[in-house]
């Protein structure tokens, strides 16, 4: 069985794992937790079975944990805002272009948190980590065709979630 030097692996892949976690969470403490959990989980997994693609495994684990954290955060915010009837995903366009763009990235995070977990993972691994269909299918133990289907569904759902309210009102909701 091949034995990994995890200290060397940590130094080699720290940057990409950190960026993956931080981009999704935008919070240093949460990203640090996610970063450590991903490495420790990969280490524990490598003790039980051989790991062929360490980078893909680390990205998969970091993305999964970051999405879980994001979903918990969005659920919590929604729960706290429920009494006031505040919508988390604000579709109101701002007057300033920068503010609007910033809001768009935040809305993308909130929308990813609303995706089914498998779709969210496929979308993040493909678009934020540039993994190929083949790498994603191996890592998630699904076929390449299934990766394509999940990616297509995720994008359609994200477009619907990101659309302004006015545009949504003009057509039927997604999935009906």
């Amino acid at each position: 069985m091949h034995v990994h030097n995890w200290q060397r692996i940590a130094e080699e892949h720290a940057s990409v794992v950190w960026q993956t976690a931080y981009r999704l969470l935008r919070n240093q403490a949460d990203a640090a937790d996610c970063f450590q959990e991903a490495f420790l989980a990969a280490f524990a997994l490598s003790q039980r079975q051989p790991v062929r693609n360490v980078r893909a495994l680390l990205l998969h684990l970091a993305t999964t944990r970051a999405i879980d954290q994001l979903r918990r955060r969005v659920r919590r915010v929604r729960h706290e805002a429920n009494d006031d009837g505040i919508d988390i995903v604000s579709a109101r366009p701002g007057p300033d272009a920068d503010a609007q763009n910033l809001e768009l990235a935040e809305r993308l995070r909130a929308a990813i948190a609303q995706l089914p977990p498998q779709e969210a993972k496929v979308f993040c691994l493909r678009h934020f980590n540039d993994l190929s269909y083949r790498e994603i299918s191996k890592e998630l133990t699904i076929t390449s065709g299934a990766v394509g289907v999940l990616l297509h569904r995720a994008k359609a759902r994200l477009r619907y979630l990101l659309e302004p309210v006015e545009a949504k009102e003009k057509r039927l909701p997604y999935g009906t």
């Binding site: 763009n101 768009l104 990235a105 809305r107 993308l108 678009h127 934020f128 994200l158 477009r159 990101l162």
Partner: peptide, 11 residues
């Protein structure tokens, strides 16, 4: 595409 713009902004 709003999704494309969001991905670019995010990245």
């Amino acid at each position: 595409d709003i999704l494309q713009r969001a991905i670019e902004q995010y990245s």
